[in-house]
């Protein structure tokens, strides 16, 4: 069953990719569909993020996970304050590295992706260590 899922996903995804590349000169997607596909992708990903952040097997996932996700989301949205950034720089300097922190040119206007993911995980892990469900 698992193999079937992987094969179906792989074949279907490759077909979409190849179809676009090959049909380039001969085919123009109808405008409404062209507009809809990125929106559909955003809706699915947002729903996946929301349910994965808040629920576990159809019930509330507890407090630690959503709080961790929230910390990550805020960092992704807003770059960490100057204070945090300069602290990170001085740590980097102490570690003998100079120049910009690794991954600073990361996605969007927020903190680098690595920072977002690690902060979310660390927050949830620390809360659990402190006994929060």
């Amino acid at each position: 069953m698992l193999i079937a899922v992987i094969v179906a996903l792989a074949v279907g995804t490759y077909a979409f990719r190849l179809a676009g590349v090959v049909l380039h000169d001969r085919f123009d997607l109808p405008a409404p569909l062209r507009r809809m596909l990125p929106l559909a992708a955003a809706a699915l990903l947002a729903a996946l993020a929301g349910t994965a952040a808040l629920t576990e097997s159809g019930a509330f996932a507890g407090v630690s996970r959503p709080l961790g996700v929230a910390v990550g989301a805020v960092l992704a949205w807003r770059r960490p304050s100057l204070l945090v950034r300069s602290a990170a720089r001085s740590i980097a300097a102490m570690a003998g590295r100079s120049g910009r922190p690794v991954g600073e040119a990361g996605a969007g206007g927020g903190a680098p992706f690595v920072v977002v993911v690690i902060s979310a995980a660390a927050t949830a892990a620390l809360l659990r260590l402190a006994g929060v469900p």
Partner: peptide, 8 residues
């Protein structure tokens, strides 16, 4: 918690 945060 890392997974949903990464998605966001």
């Amino acid at each position: 918690a890392a997974f949903p945060a990464g998605l966001i």
